[in-house]
Simulated assay, not measured.
Amino acid sequence: MQVDEYLHRIGAVRPARPDLEGLRHLQERHVLTVPFENLGYHLDEEIHLGGRVVDKIVRQRRGGGCYETNPAFGMLLTALGYDVEILPGRVFRPDGLGPPYCHLALRVSVGGVPWLVDTGFGRNSRRPLRLDDPGPQPDPHGVFHVRDGEVTCDGRPLYRVEDRPARLDDFRPTLWWWRTCPDSPFLQDVFCSLPTDGGRATLRGRRLTVDGVATELTDDAAVFAAYRKYFGIDLDRLPRDPVARAAGVILDDAPGSRP
């Protein structure tokens, strides 16, 4: 029943067998329907690594970061008969390669061929990428390369995954850092993003960008409506805006903003 609910949530058809065609279909549907978002970090919600995140994605119709969407998607793939492993990764930042275990991706083996599956990076591919092919891999989101675990898109380095698989519990220390450290990017910005037919829809605080066109939303009602229209998310309160708080603007007493 839970598998059927998950498939319905992402608008996917159950594969007849755990083959590559089914994997491509499932990843594409997941990427196009489950937002890359960090709202929970600013709504005082707990961030889970285990099965409880499936309920968040399926029944609450929310999204999340890589620690949430990829393990949940991995559970779905495992239930459908796929061979799934968790791979730790390091993200490329302006000042160099980030620390270990700051990214979580999946390795899915189909017929002995290893595929990189990622639904939680924001700029990830829409379809699986071969881990053993260093050549160009065209995708609706760009031209990707995977060389010695390093993933690039249109020549821009994104992250590097290790070859040795990890356990979900291995990510708990870094999840604590993402969740509590003032330097955590997830605490410095509120964002929600989802690909569209013409590009991408992204809401950062009150700035909505749809297919390259940006709009400043002037009131809470417009923000609630944007979450609903572009991401399918119904909120009963808005996440706190860390940018405004850092600038000394107090929003906690604004309608819809109180925790």
Results as ranks from 00 to 15, higher is better:
Met1Lys: 10
Glu5Phe: 11
Gly11Ser: 06
Arg17Trp: 05
Pro18Lys: 06
Pro18Met: 07
Arg24Tyr: 00
His25Ile: 04
His25Ala: 12
His25Trp: 00
Leu26Trp: 03
Gln27Lys: 00
His30Val: 05
Val34Ile: 15
Pro35Ile: 09
Glu37Met: 13
Asn38Ser: 04
Leu39Arg: 02
His42Phe: 09
Leu43Lys: 05
Glu45Pro: 01
Gly51Met: 09
Asp55Phe: 15
Asp55Glu: 15
Lys56Cys: 01
Arg59Pro: 04
Arg59Asn: 14
Gln60Glu: 12
Arg62Trp: 14
Gly63Lys: 00
Pro71Gln: 06
Gly74Ser: 07
Met75Thr: 11
Met75Glu: 15
Leu77His: 03
Ala79Pro: 13
Gly81Met: 13
Gly81Ile: 10
Gly81Asn: 14
Tyr82Met: 03
Val84Tyr: 02
Glu85Ile: 00
Glu85Pro: 01
Pro88Leu: 12
Gly89Glu: 02
Gly89His: 02
Phe92Gly: 11
Gly96Met: 06
Leu97Thr: 07
Leu97Glu: 15
Pro99Thr: 00
Leu104His: 02
Leu104Gln: 06
Leu104Pro: 05
Ala105Lys: 08
Leu106Gly: 03
Val110Ile: 04
Val110Tyr: 08
Gly111Tyr: 10
Pro114Tyr: 10
Asp118Gln: 10
Thr119Ile: 11
Thr119Ala: 15
Gly120Arg: 08
Arg123Trp: 14
Asn124Trp: 08
Ser125Ala: 15
Arg126Pro: 05
Pro128Cys: 04
Arg130Pro: 02
Arg130His: 09
Leu131Pro: 04
Gly135Trp: 01
Pro138Thr: 13
Phe144Pro: 00
Phe144Leu: 04
Phe144Thr: 04
Val146Leu: 04
Val146Ala: 06
Asp148Pro: 02
Glu150Cys: 12
Val151Glu: 09
Gly155Pro: 02
Gly155Phe: 11
Arg156Gln: 06
Arg156Val: 13
Pro157Gly: 15
Pro157Asp: 15
Tyr159Lys: 04
Asp169Gln: 12
Pro173Ser: 12
Thr174Cys: 00
Trp178Gly: 15
Thr180Leu: 00
Cys181Met: 00
Pro182Ser: 11
Asp183Arg: 13
Pro185His: 14
Asp197Lys: 07
Asp197Val: 08
Gly198Leu: 13
Gly198Trp: 09
Arg200Leu: 02
Ala201Val: 03
Gly205Thr: 07
Arg206Thr: 10
Arg207Phe: 06
Leu208Val: 02
Val210Trp: 10
Asp211Lys: 15
Val213Glu: 13
Val213Ala: 10
Thr215Gln: 14
Asp220Arg: 08
Ala221Asn: 10
Phe224Gly: 00
Phe224Ile: 01
Phe224Asp: 01
Tyr227Ala: 11
Arg228Asp: 05
Lys229Asn: 09
Lys229Phe: 10
Ile233Ala: 01
Asp234Pro: 07
Asp236Cys: 10
Pro239Cys: 11
Pro239Arg: 08
Asp241Leu: 05
Pro242Tyr: 05
Pro242Glu: 14
Val243Asp: 06
Ala244Trp: 12
Arg245Ser: 12
Arg245Tyr: 04
Ala247Ile: 06
Ala247Val: 07
Val249Thr: 07
Asp253Ala: 13
Ala254Thr: 07
Ser257Ala: 15
Pro259Ile: 02
Pro259Phe: 03
